[in-house]
């Protein structure tokens, strides 16, 4: 009855190629986005996320051409993020075949953008992407939100920002731990748990996965509705099906 948990490969795209780095740096080439998207779809991926990771820093616009090429061949839903700053840019991404747009820096700078897009095209197509990093503030650990591909401290608290994003009309939260991203040591379960217990929209776990059990923990301990990964898939450590069989054997509903 409840919807199944989703497994989502993420393609970080730079200049039309899929790349993946450690903590957003040291990028290594991992392939063609169209090729990879289809490969993952055939491997039972529930969704694909396409992030133009350099867009905010360098001020580039979104990768409409890649979006279009992916949409021509892909028959599962996909989300596009990176550099979407206006309602019109969101519309253009959606018109070219994407199902959802993911907002990060632009939503921090202009929170009303979330509302504008969700009012026009529906809550279901707005994903609020939050990059968070642990920080000690007044003697306790909090998760602080960073913008501009994880480079700029914003002063926002991840839990508060997620709640506000939901109230503004975000249909989903894509939650990335900057600390864990690229380490392979597991998602930040504390961050996940704190956010997922405070919002009613689905939370996608991102950043740090290295083992199958990390995904299981993100769902069971972190309360995530979906798990996202990049390098473990790109470099062939696990297939999407490996993840799903692992989860299914442990009683988690997945689409197989």
């Amino acid at each position: 009855m409840p919807l199944c948990k989703r497994v989502i490969p993420c393609l970080d795209v730079d200049a039309g190629r899929v790349v993946k780095g450690t903590s957003f740096r040291n990028l290594r080439d991992a392939g063609d986005p169209v090729e990879l998207a289809v490969r993952y779809s055939e491997d039972c991926a529930d969704e694909i996320v396409l992030l133009d990771i350099t867009a905010s820093t360098e001020g580039r616009s979104t990768i409409i051409e890649v979006v279009r090429r992916v949409a021509e061949v892909l028959d599962i839903p996909f989300t596009v993020g990176g550099g979407i700053r206006t309602k019109d840019e969101a519309w253009s991404v959606l018109l070219n075949g994407a199902d959802k747009v993911s907002l990060n820096t632009a939503a921090i700078q202009n929170p009303q953008l979330i509302t504008e897009i969700s009012k026009n095209f529906g809550d279901q197509c707005v994903v609020l992407a939050i990059d968070a990093k642990r920080e000690i503030r007044s003697g306790r650990v909090i998760h602080s939100v960073y913008s501009h591909s994880g480079t700029k401290h914003t002063g926002l608290d991840a839990v508060q920002w997620a709640k506000r994003g939901e109230a503004l009309g975000a249909g989903e939260i894509l939650l990335t731990s900057i600390d864990m991203d690229g380490t392979g040591l597991g998602y930040d379960l504390e961050l996940l748990r704190r956010v997922s217990s405070e919002v009613n929209v689905p939370v996608i776990a991102s950043g740090g996965v290295g083992e199958l059990k990390h995904m299981y923990e993100a769902i069971t301990i972190g309360g995530a509705d979906a798990v996202l990964a990049a390098s473990i898939f790109h470099y062939g450590k696990y297939s999407v099906r490996d993840v799903k069989y692992y989860l299914k054997e442990r009683g988690i509903g997945v689409r197989l």
Binding site: M1, L3, C4, D46, G122, D123, Q124, G171, P202
Partner: peptide, 9 residues
């Protein structure tokens, strides 16, 4: 449950 009913069923 949540609306819209969104996802794989």
């Amino acid at each position: 449950g949540k609306l819209p009913h969104m996802g794989w069923n």
